[in-house]
Design a protein around this nucleic acid. Structure first.
Lengths: 331, 331
DNA sequence: ATACGCGATGATCAAATGTTCATCGCGTCG
DNA sequence: CGACGCGATGAACATTTGATCATCGCGTAT
């Protein structure tokens, strides 16, 4: 068996970076690079491919509607829900792609807004964690990304705000502040004890004083994150749903379609910002790219805590329609 | 005059978006799109280009490693001054440490470049003499280090090219060639006599034929090397400065901020390579780590003899800014 | 020592994309 | 009405990139 790396492409990460720069940034042709470095063009191609696969270069495509296209939708959302602005992405069939498309727009929005003193509270969820991957910062800053919720070993990386924070800090520059506490604890007493802890307290205080917050909106489905993370059993989810809960903000604040907070087994057991805290943050960005979340989004909008809604075109339309019908039909 | 938009590419912004999505996100080929929309492939290409120019799609490339400031700085320097490359160190408060940091990068660069037949002409100055100390050669070579200027007993070791040459030869392997002549003589006649000397002549000829040259850039301050070496009195320095001289290359070729050679009491009295000689050396590396030298560096760059500039990040930025302002403001 | 596996390598071919140029349609101006 | 300007258009060509495959070098197992 050949266990050792018998032959390696003899290029350091530095050289790969240089190569990638010349190709992608300076627009050299592969042929030119081949002559410059005295290897075959094929090899240059392979090295460039490797630079991508190793994450040395990332190429991201941002697709946004021409302004006027979404302007009407945005205006409607603003008028209807009192939010400050909307970030609306093009629709896409594939859920993963859709998330990336939306995340790209959110990343660009952050790139516009973040300054050297900015503090961003970061929630959890796939839509939130997809954002840092799409960041292409124009310049490095010295901003701060603070976890808005504690950690959890279940549910994968996407569910870990501190991972997302770190990636943000890496991309935009600045530091990340981890909330050194589990996301969820057994009971209220444990929570109170943790909240009294200095380290926890300090992190949370910084999060509360953030200039911006980036949070996800969730739905309540059998396979939702809540179940995957083991916070709810299937039965609990069903029970909660029967109470009229349609979604969550940040992954743990459950709401019904009128934006009212629901009483769930989680209340008082989560270490993180509450909806009340979010109210005091000047720009709360809520992102959701899945059509199943329309109910949750409507509820979230109606809580009045959201300043910027990031979602897809069709979801925005559906939410507006849903709101319309519920106003008309009563319920 | 044709004021109206006579013929418009008959595609709405929406269709453009759709097109861009299919191409960039879903990976369709232009040919396929052409058939799908029943237009020529060329037109698809043009529409896609338009989608970019109208901001519907944004394609950004991120280099993860340091695509950092120094890469951008290097590009700017290359574009502005026509040099071949820049070696840029991070900033450091302490002048001595700064010199070492920069010298380390230069040493590494030499280590990359030097082959068995390489001949390097070596100038004088603290920045040059700091380089051999930083050398950690991957392997020994048989290259040659030739003094680009004669010797002098004043000013200390750093001012002695032959000392620096010997150290280089020690570290990289190979031999050093001393220029057996004083750096400066009383008058032109003496110089001419020395230049006629066989030994001197041979050394200088080898220096002229070098593949690379490593030279320092100096400033014109009261405590500069020139004074310390006794080549200039304080008054002479002041006089020269009043003529617009801002620095020197190699320690004796004085230049103003436009890169023009200045007439000083030294002209015709130095035994060493002139700027003209440098022009014929394929890779002239100029190093300078002191912020007081920005003017001199600008002048040096403008002489057009420099191929590789080694300096610090902040100096590089300042030089670019200085060049900018002088271009804009005239004079 | 020899055969074999494995990945790197570059020649060669195929596909995709970019560029150029002659032409066309349409509106304007004389 | 016709000449002209202007931009759009697509055919033809050039360039660039991607894919395939035979070969090679090197380490390992037989």
């Amino acid at each position: 068996m050949n266990t050792s790396i018998s032959r390696e492409l003899p290029m350091t990460a530095d050289e790969l970076t240089e190569l990638a720069k010349l190709y992608h940034i300076d627009g050299w042709t592969q042929e030119a690079l081949a002559q410059r470095f005295d290897v075959s063009r094929v090899k240059i191609g392979r090295l460039l491919k490797r630079a991508v696969s190793e994450g040395i270069v990332e190429i991201c495509v941002r697709l946004s509607h021409p302004p006027d296209r979404t302007a009407a939708l945005e205006q409607a959302l603003i008028a209807r829900f009192g939010i400050k602005r909307a970030i609306i992405s093009v629709d896409h069939r594939d859920a993963e792609r859709q998330r990336e498309l939306l995340a790209g727009l959110v990343a660009r929005y952050l790139d516009q807004r973040l300054g050297d003193t900015s503090v961003v509270a970061v929630g959890m969820g796939r839509n939130v964690s997809a954002v840092p991957r799409q960041v292409v910062a124009r310049q490095h800053r010295h901003c701060t990304f603070v976890c808005a919720i504690g950690g959890s070993y279940r549910g994968g990386e996407a569910m870990n705000a501190d991972q997302t924070c770190r990636r943000f800090a890496e991309r935009f520059g600045g530091e990340s502040v981890t909330l050194y506490a589990p996301a969820i604890v057994a009971n209220r007493d444990t929570r109170d004890a943790l909240m009294a802890n200095d380290t926890v307290r300090q992190s949370l205080t910084r999060a509360q004083q953030a200039d911006m917050a980036l949070v996800g909106v969730g739905d309540i489905l059998e396979d939702s994150n809540m179940v995957r993370m083991g916070w709810f059993t299937q039965e609990e989810i069903n029970a909660v749903r029967r109470l009229g809960v349609v979604g969550d903000i940040m992954g743990y604040d459950f709401i019904d379609m009128d934006g009212a907070l629901a009483d769930t087994p989680l209340v008082g057991r989560v270490i993180g910002l509450t909806i009340e805290h979010l109210r005091h943050i000047p720009d709360v960005i809520a992102t959701a790219s899945e059509p199943t979340k329309v109910g949750g989004i409507l509820g979230a909008l109606r809580t009045g805590t959201i300043d910027t809604l990031a979602t897809t075109e069709s979801i925005a339309e559906t939410v507006l329609g849903l709101d319309q019908s519920r106003r008309a039909g009563g319920d």
